[in-house]
Amino acid sequence: MRRLLIALMTLVMATPALADCPLDLGRGTGWVVFSDHYMIAFRPDPVRVEVGEPFALILNVCTKGGDPAELVAVEAQMPEHKHTMNYKPTIVASPDGRYRAEGLVFHMPGRWEISFDVRAGEESERLSHDIILK
């Protein structure tokens, strides 16, 4: 826990662009994934993801250098079962700078790996995050 806190604080201090990239998307729930260049904060809508029920993701995508970053694609798969979702999400950018990925359905319990393709200028990268659905 303390390690995580220190990591987060270091992160906050090292990233001046964070003021424009709030990690809290409201409701006190959500996840943060980051690489050397990018940070993504996201939360599901509705907050509780249910097996077989459509949901959306609300996301903030930023570079650590403060450049605007673009969310290109959201995909999810079950690595153990080697299959993707049966649905293709669409991405809409809202005026407040957030993204909304609509039309996700996790149709089985188990481990799902969500991947995010992000881009800033010529640089693009894939970040991913695991969710275990029970």
């Binding site: 049966n86 649905y87 609509e102 039309g103």
Partner: peptide, 12 residues
């Protein structure tokens, strides 16, 4: 209509 709008064809 969310499922209908987003459902995708897979060769599987």
């Amino acid at each position: 209509a969310r499922r209908t709008r987003h459902v995708r064809r897979l060769h599987t």
